[in-house]
Write a protein that binds this DNA or RNA. Structure first.
Lengths: 254, 254
DNA sequence: CGTATCCGAGCTGTATACAGAAATACGCCT
DNA sequence: AGGCGTATTTCTGTATACAGCTCGGATACG
């Protein structure tokens, strides 16, 4: 089918996963507008699999929070207010803060923290660089994602990992969601420097078993994202750099 | 089928929901042991619906955290260490703490807080009562659940509600999970009194917009559950009063 | 002209049939 | 007698057929 060819032919192992990725992309790119009802049959044509995996994918995306189940059955694309986004970021901050505190309180061996130290050093290099801004930032995004993931692992708590994974699944709530927005701003380098100092201090706090400090640092760290969100909402064009921006219906279209 | 008759004939609207409830019960009662592989076909016979809704139910239960997806496909009943349970309770405390703080910081009108005040008054009465211990506690459980639910609503944040709902879905992480354990203990009344004082102080803190106080109170409040867990783990017989206790594989079977 | 009712199209929920993969058990070979 | 390979069986993943329901439109009536 012609339309199906639009979607990458990625022959992933599972049809369900393929459908999930395809539909998620449709939602995040705005091909399916917020509030719109998304029917199973229409997707069957678009992603080229039968109803069963499409159905499973829709349920999973509803669990992720991108779709909203209707009482009558079926799903609609969820719309997020700016406060919803803000709250999602705060939730992530609180949970990551808990992870940092647990790591600190329970103690982490030096060998366990070593990978994170290495990650920190790599981030240092990226921040120190003075090249093409966009490239620096995309390097930063990748390393930053790794840093956060490994940090959460230090808490060594499966329940917490699960909960954080869910919080981060909302694309605009991920630790790196708003980093690219900074790349368009004059004080870009400043913010990176501050964020990286957060990283460093959190590691120090964990090493010295300062739980409260580690926790509040991670919270404040997440608020960098909140601040970037506020900036992005002012100049609408930079908002396109944020994944899933199509879902954010700005309440202030004055 | 004879076996299907064991399950209540509850003709709920949806086959999927029926299957979900039935399988959840099988897991929580221990009919399906922790670690055991749960096959779709075997459940088809037990709950009396076809594979499609059973399959959907299994995926939902995996999302809830009661089942664990296997790489090869299918699911196993998840096992929880006591630390997993402890962490789950801590996660709930942290999230409910966030809810209380947001409510306090953003401000709550007196009319909005009124239902919670009423709930508090009803709890007061229950705590003051001096009747059959078990009845008092089951009354308390119901009211306590309502109190927590309404409190979370005060934060007025859909993302946070979603996240907390997920945290509470783990049966032993719910606010009332370990209340029944107290009913067997001599200092039962004492704990209820303390818990109720937490409730009262949190409301006061929210009214007076003391965010930090509201947050730390809710955290400490959740730690009552942690303490009850520790007690329940000592006398194994009281552990049966906890929903889903069958999933907790005590690491210390000394 | 507005409103209520009825009918039809489309969609979801459910059941089942089929294919491929994994686990198990059996038999054969060493 | 034990280990390995193969065959069988059982399972999951996927596709499709069917039934009931919901929603929208058209028509008739006030």
């Amino acid at each position: 089918m012609a339309v199906a060819a639009e979607i990458e032919p990625e022959r992933s192992n599972s049809q369900t996963v393929r459908a999930q990725l395809a539909v998620r992309d449709l939602v995040l790119t705005g091909a399916l507008k917020a509030g719109e009802h998304v029917s199973e049959l229409s997707l069957v044509g678009r992603v080229g699999v039968s109803r069963t995996p499409v159905r499973a994918a829709l349920h999973r995306l509803a669990e992720e929070g991108l779709l909203e189940p209707r009482a009558a059955g079926g799903f609609t694309v969820k719309a997020f207010s700016d406060r919803d986004v803000l709250d999602s970021i705060e939730i992530r901050g609180v949970l990551e803060g808990l992870a940092a505190r647990l790591a600190a309180e329970r103690g982490v061996s030096l060998t366990a923290i070593a990978p994170l130290r290495r990650c920190l050093a790599e981030l240092d290099e990226v921040v120190r660089q003075t090249g093409r801004s966009v490239e620096i930032f995309s390097d930063y995004v990748a390393l930053n994602a790794r840093f956060h993931a490994v940090l959460v692992g230090l808490a060594d708590s499966r329940p917490l990992e699960r909960q954080i994974e869910r919080a981060v699944n909302l694309p605009f709530a991920s630790p790196s969601a708003f980093v690219m927005v900074q790349s368009t701003m004059p004080e870009a380098r400043t913010i990176l420097t501050i964020a990286q100092d957060h990283h460093r201090c959190v590691l120090d706090a964990i090493e010295q078993r300062e739980g409260a400090r580690a926790e509040s640092l991670m919270r404040e760290h997440s608020r960098l994202a909140s601040r970037n969100l506020a900036l992005a909402l002012r100049n609408q064009e930079t908002l396109d750099l944020v994944p899933g921006a199509a879902l954010i219906r700005s309440s202030s279209i004055a």
